[in-house]
Computed example of a mutant assay.
Amino acid sequence: MLTATNGAPYLGCGLGVALLAFTSWRDDTHPLSPQLRLLVQLISASLACLPLLFSINVNPLWGAAVVLGIMWLINLYNFMDGTDALAGAQGLIFTLGVLMLFPEYGSAEALLLIVTSSAITAFLIFNWPPAKIFMGDVGSTVLGLIFGFITLQIAETFNQLAACLILLAGFITDASWTLAARFLNRQRVWEAHRLHYYQKMARKFASHKAPLATYLLLGALVQWPLALGALHATSWYWTLYLLAAITIHALLCWQYRAGLTDPKDCLASPETFTSN
């Protein structure tokens, strides 16, 4: 495992979480500029990953790529928190998947996974449709940072990295596809919208439970087995498992025209299933 010999990575992650949570809380109550939010995300991601990367002498270019990757995970998790219990369900797919499938991890990683999954489970009791409380930017951005940190801590091989990405494939694929589609169609990608496939699915079935059930079923019946396959794949065959997980969610993006505006999207009320 890419584990430092001291507690610096966990101290850095804790500081990053605290900074990101405070800023996200301020943004929830008094909207902040996108530039300030991105700066805070850059600092938080750097605090979470650079102590570990420096301790193992990672090339600075790879270090920069990791920081940008974690920043994207922070943002996409925020984008995808738009219907009841979905972000929590994705969180359990990841944390429980790592706890069950990975061959080994340190006691610190196990504790972080158990605490995070327990907190998510408790939250879901009140966030289950119809939700009584909501995650907000504080919860969604922090989960994105924590999952990026956990991935960095336990992914020693490409197989293990692929397994982590497979467990997060739903959010990664929908958010990336939707952003790309909106950019290519010259939409204002920084503005709130209702164009993710999970949002369109929720509108089609007039229920938050439709995307929630889809994610839970795909996570347990498809992504967990694919992640297990990637962990034990020989040579570069882990790419096939990762591609399969991405393709399944990409097909749903294609089916629901994620990122593209339809007439019925224009008629939907602005407060319904909106992503930041």
Rank of each mutant, 00 (worst) to 15 (best):
T151N: 12
F149L: 08
V222G: 03
L2E: 14
L184G: 03
Y198W: 04
Q90L: 06
Q153A: 15
E109T: 15
I93M: 02
L168Q: 09
T95E: 08
L52M: 11
G106W: 11
S176W: 05
Q187N: 09
L76S: 00
A64L: 09
I172M: 05
L96M: 15
T261F: 01
A244W: 03
N6Q: 08
G97P: 05
A89T: 12
L228W: 06
L216T: 06
F273H: 05
P263D: 04
N75Q: 00
G91H: 02
F123Q: 09
Y77C: 08
L2Q: 14
F94E: 12
L50W: 02
L184I: 11
L242T: 06
V189F: 00
A169Q: 01
H196W: 00
C13E: 07
M1G: 11
L251S: 11
F123V: 05
L242C: 08
F22L: 15
N78D: 07
P129V: 03
T239E: 06
M80R: 00
C164G: 05
W238S: 07
E104Y: 14
H196P: 06
L267I: 12
K204P: 10
I74T: 10
L260A: 13
L11Q: 07
D265Q: 11
Y198Q: 01
M71K: 01
A108K: 13
L113M: 09
R37L: 01
E271M: 07
P31W: 02
Y198I: 01
L161I: 11
D174M: 09
Q255A: 13
K200Y: 05
T5W: 14
A244C: 09
S118I: 09
I166M: 07
L212Y: 03
Q153S: 15
L145S: 12
N6F: 12
R194H: 15
Y237T: 15
L113T: 13
T234Y: 02
S235I: 08
Y10L: 15
T121D: 01
L112T: 15
Q255T: 14
C253I: 05
Q35N: 09
W62H: 13
L184W: 08
W72I: 03
H193E: 04
Y237A: 12
F147S: 15
P9R: 04
A163K: 01
Y215F: 12
L101R: 11
D265F: 03
G63R: 07
H193L: 11
D262E: 13
G144E: 15
M71G: 09
R194Y: 02
C266P: 01
A169Y: 02
H193G: 04
L68C: 08
A131L: 09
A258S: 13
A220P: 05
A245T: 11
L99H: 10
S118G: 12
I114Y: 14
G12P: 07
L124M: 14
I125P: 02
Q187F: 00
T261Q: 08
W190G: 03
N185M: 06
L145G: 13
L168F: 04
T274W: 00
I248M: 07
I125N: 08
V222F: 03
